[in-house]
């Protein structure tokens, strides 16, 4: 799995960081998404998919 995050559409709602803190963080300044790892371990893939559906702005995606 490879994650993509687009800070320019992120609204800093924090659903990603709340759902998978090991993969997503938020920047100190703007609160927008910071990707901690692009290719998460398999046991986190389901949680990452959940974060993608929870994100209100469509800023994160997986392929």
């Amino acid at each position: 799995m490879k994650i993509k995050a687009d800070e320019s559409v992120c609204i800093g709602a924090g659903m990603c960081a709340l759902t998978v803190p090991a993969v997503f963080d938020q920047s100190e300044e703007e609160g927008t998404v910071v990707l901690l790892q692009e290719a998460p371990p398999q046991d986190l893939e389901e949680a990452v998919r959940r974060a993608v559906t929870l994100c209100p702005s469509g800023a994160i995606s997986v392929e």
Partner: peptide, 15 residues
């Protein structure tokens, strides 16, 4: 909207 919201999101992060 973005102009204002971006100024604030850093203050309301999970951390």
């Amino acid at each position: 909207h973005t102009r204002f919201r971006k100024l604030l999101t850093g203050q309301f992060t999970v951390r």
